[in-house]
Design a protein around this nucleic acid. Structure first.
Length: 648
RNA sequence: GCUGCUGUAGCUCAGAGGUAGAGCACUCCCUUGGUAAGGGAGAGGUCGAGAGUUCAAUUCUCUCCAGCAGCACCA
């Protein structure tokens, strides 16, 4: 047998026979390490304890102390153990796939009856039994035919299909957790007992399409979370409870921001408080866009289908548009219109009025564009995904050689605004050509290359999102995360060579000839609705003072203070602060509690002492201590706080 | 749209085959109280909509609507 040299993290190397497994290596170091070990990293690859090492390599043996590997394996083994538990309880259930995800795993099953919460409890119990048996995990590589026959014999059609989709040159690896077997890349733990029996929980069941394809079978997906120990699990569950309190739908009610009702699903009734946030944000954006060199326009809500046919939206999105049919009394035909689902074709109409010169480019056109889209019912989510919304939309008409600088400038514009609004971090995703698309491959090559290089030049290395682009061009997405970790696309920046062509936008170049401008579609916030939802959750309702809808409540402690309270509010209002009195016949404790729950940033209390001294007792949201300050002083400082970040 | 769950007072929720209950909020009265709920009284509901089963349905069944979780979708 050939000898190979394994190099350890401490720099030492030892010789072993070729084909030695990490399990043997660990055992050669110490018996206890052999038992504690969960996996290895061999030449930067996560390696099962059973896999032979063919040649010289670097090796690191992992135990449960190594978080990344431990969590990966615990969650992956949980997926297998759960699938085994399910099949032990209900042998007819067919298994499919079960990957590791953030904080846990899921596994998709095909079963006639729905899994109930009681079923999940039963599965959890069975999983603990399997873990406590400490059964060995073993693995083998199988021939394709053997695997297919095996799964056909076991009536596991999904597994057969999976094997068919694995490239022929890839080995098929089988894993056993005790007697139960699954097709799996691995690696896995050494035995089921290495999974902490008290640190996992099955969370919920939901439908999921086989292979993510809505034309195929709907399976049942069971989600679980798993950690290294009970404390971590508990911390995670507590975090989820806390996150639920920040849900914008809950805070929207508590802060009296907006409501939604059956008669207008997916549309928002903004209350005075919520609308204050909205208009403050819009005023802020309008100022920023002016500074950013945009001209603001406004375009129609109801537009004839002809324009949507010309733009290509009718063909692709007809089912998702609100159609408005109008019977003109003397018209031969019904006029068919659509509520505008987006602003781009309308902006091209504005652009097309009058002849444009290359000197006019780049032309940055912005609109707070109200759009309606008939989103699938299941897609609606609070104010984050709605059927009626307003984009802070904009289209930059430019030459090809301006794409890069315009993109870079927009990314800078967006970063500054996100920072102003409290989002230091956001992720950038790059989506390239989808299957259904307009435009030739050459045009797509050009657009993708231009956008990508501009993004990199601006200092961002985007996460790749293959095939997720818009039908007319590649897309840059700026993604923010809500309270419970769901990602939402907010900002976007897209290169489009297609729409100017379809809607015949031109400019006269230096050469006196007609040229096609490139259109950059961009939105910073995305939509006010979604962004406000994210903003509420990010701040847990405790919005920055300048954008908080109710900034100050002046509360009387005794009714003798009422006049001074009114005077204070009048002075605050005059200083540009949103202030109101609370003169109700209630104790100060009661008022403080109520306005704290309503997330009012500042409560000023006035009793007899304050009236005498012309002071107020100030209490800021989230703080217990109070401070007595002269009224004039408070007004000056709150006046400063009320200024939007761009005006400071 | 799909799978599953949910829908009872303004809000949060309990309840049961014989047409409903709590707390908070609301109105009135008492209380003027110093930083997260002072006390009392009162008013408030076609139990999401429609159909079916039943002597009787808000409760059981079906259809629809809306919401929630996830999937699919997201110009």
């Amino acid at each position: 047998m050939a000898q190979i040299s394994l190099k350890f993290p401490d720099g030492n190397a030892r010789d072993y026979e070729a084909g030695v497994t990490p399990a043997e290596v660990a055992a050669s170091i110490s018996t206890s390490l052999g038992k504690k070990a969960i996996s290895a990293t061999v030449n930067d690859q996560h390696w099962d304890m059973q896999w032979p090492i063919p040649s010289d390599a670097s090796i690191a043996i992992h135990t449960l102390k190594d978080d990344a590997q431990a969590l990966e394996l615990i969650r992956h083994d949980c997926a297998h153990i759960m699938a085994r538990a399910v099949q032990e309880i209900w042998p007819d259930v067919k298994v499919t796939i079960g990957p590791v995800i953030e904080n846990g795993w899921y596994y998709d099953f095909d079963r006639e009856e729905p899994f109930t919460p009681e079923d999940l409890a039963q599965v959890e119990t069975k999983m603990r039994e399997i873990i406590n048996k400490r059964e060995p995990v073993t693995t083998e590589i199988w021939e394709r035919d053997r695997a297919v026959k095996f799964y056909e014999a076991n009536n596991e059609p999904y597994k057969v299909e999976l094997i068919d989709s694995i490239p022929g040159n890839e080995p098929l690896r089988m894993y056993w957790h005790g007697h139960w077997q699954d097709l799996c890349r691995g690696p896995h733990l050494q035995h089921t007992g290495q999974v902490p029996a008290d640190a996992f929980k099955l969370m919920n069941v939901a439908g999921a399409y086989w292979r993510g394809d809505s034309n195929r079978a709907m399976l049942q997906r069971i989600y679980g979370v798993a950690f290294k120990n009970k404390q971590d699990l508990k911390a995670h569950l507590t975090m989820l409870e806390e996150a639920a309190k920040r849900d914008h739908r809950k805070l929207g009610k508590e802060m009296d921001l907006f409501h939604m009702q059956e008669e207008a699903p997916g549309q928002i009734f903004w209350h005075p408080n919520g609308w204050t946030i909205y208009t403050e944000l819009q005023d802020y954006m309008r100022r920023q866009q002016r500074r950013g060199g945009y001209v603001e326009v406004n375009t129609p809500q109801v537009v004839d289908r002809k324009l949507w046919e010309a733009s290509g939206h009718w063909e692709k999105y007809q089912e998702n548009m609100f159609i408005v049919e109008v019977d003109e009394e003397h018209a031969r035909e019904k006029a068919v219109n659509a509520l505008k689902p987006m602003n781009c074709p309308c902006h091209v109409q504005v652009y097309n009025q009058g002849l444009k010169s290359y000197r006019d480019l780049p032309l940055r056109m912005a609109e707070f564009g109200s759009c309606n889209r008939y989103e699938p019912s299941g897609a609606l989510h609070g104010i984050m995904r709605v059927r009626g919304f307003t984009q802070d939309d904009g289209h930059i008409f430019c030459r090809e050689d301006q794409i890069e600088s315009e993109t870079a400038e927009f990314i800078e514009f967006l970063s500054m605004i996100y920072k102003d609004l409290g989002f230091e971090k956001f992720s950038v995703k790059f989506s390239d050509r989808p299957e259904k698309r307009a435009g030739s491959d050459e045009v797509w090559d050009k657009a993708e290359a231009a956008l990508l290089s501009a993004t990199r030049a601006a200092g961002y290395e985007p996460e790749m999102n293959p095939g997720e682009g818009a039908f007319y061009g590649p897309k840059l997405e700026f993604v923010l995360t809500d309270a419970i970790g769901r990602d939402w696309q907010c900002g976007t920046h897209q290169v489009d060579f297609v729409l100017p062509e379809r809607l015949d936008a031109v400019y006269i170049g230096e050469d006196g000839a007609k040229h096609r401008p490139v259109m950059l579609h961009r939105a910073t916030l995305g939509s006010f609705e979604r962004f406000i939802g994210i903003l509420i959750e990010e701040h847990a309702g405790k919005l920055p003072f300048w954008i908080a809808p109710r900034q100050v409540v002046v509360a009387s402690i005794v009714s003798d203070a009422d006049d001074f309270c009114r005077e204070a509010v009048a002075a605050l209002k005059a200083a540009g602060v949103r202030a109101e009195t609370d003169l109700r016949n209630e104790k100060i404790n009661y008022k403080v509690r109520e306005h704290s729950l309503g997330k009012v940033p500042v409560i000023l209390a006035i009793g007899r002492k304050e009236v005498e001294d012309r002071t107020v007792t100030i209490r800021r949201l989230g703080e217990k201590q109070t401070q007595v300050v002269a009224l004039d002083e408070v007004i000056a400082s709150l006046n400063a706080d009320a200024v939007a970040p761009d005006l400071r």
